[in-house]
């Protein structure tokens, strides 16, 4: 079975904009993703090193006071389900390690891990990620959102230049 084509970018962008606007109407804030991984880190920390986590200024405060902790958990879990429905209905579900044609599995996984570490650090520093700060902050025409997006695109080009042979 061949996969169904992706939506054209203009239609996908309009759809994403409508979903984002709907989220603002319902909740008064936009979409997010990295907050879910903060919660995961805090919960995992509480499990394996409870004292250290509760006493950590950043994670301790997060666990005590972040009001969107529950919301973002449901949102991200549902995003997984929505994407799964998209992949299955589009005949695009394939268990695999996606990598460039000349890239080996160990190097791809190592780069995934490294990219994840940098992203985790960066999203906490920026107080959000491409969705929460870039997309939602951008739609709110917030200066912070655009500062983030400029940094994101500049670094994307610079680092892509260094690793392009892994993807090509």
């Amino acid at each position: 079975m061949s996969p169904r084509p992706f939506w054209p970018p203009l239609w996908a962008g309009i759809a994403l904009g409508l979903v984002l606007f709907l989220t603002f109407i319902l909740t008064g804030h936009g979409l997010g993703a990295s907050g879910f991984f903060t919660r995961l880190t805090a919960d995992f920390g509480q499990w394996v090193m409870p004292d250290l986590t509760a006493n950590n200024r950043y994670l301790g405060d997060y666990l005590r006071s972040d009001p969107l902790r529950a919301w973002i958990t449901w949102e991200v879990l549902a995003a997984f389900v929505g994407a799964l429905v998209g992949a299955l209905s589009g005949r695009r579900f394939r268990p695999k390690i996606e990598r460039g044609p000349s890239s080996a599995i160990p190097s791809r996984l190592l780069m995934s891990l490294l990219g994840g570490v940098l992203t985790g650090l960066g999203a906490r520093l920026a107080r959000g990620c491409t969705s929460g700060l870039g997309l939602s902050g951008g739609a709110a025409l917030a200066v912070g959102g655009f500062i983030f997006l400029i940094g994101f695109f500049v670094a994307g080009f610079l680092f892509s230049f260094m690793v392009r042979r892994y993807w090509k």
């Binding site: 993703a33 994407a83 990219g115 992203t119 920026a126 491409t130 940094g151 695109f153 670094a155 994307g156």
Partner: peptide, 24 residues
């Protein structure tokens, strides 16, 4: 923090291939 955070997320995206939402 938002400029440097954006740089780190951009670097992570170029190297790792995702951002938090797209990894889901």
């Amino acid at each position: 923090a938002m400029a440097v955070g954006g740089v780190l997320v951009g670097a992570g995206f170029a190297i790792g291939g995702y951002c938090p939402g797209t990894s889901v």
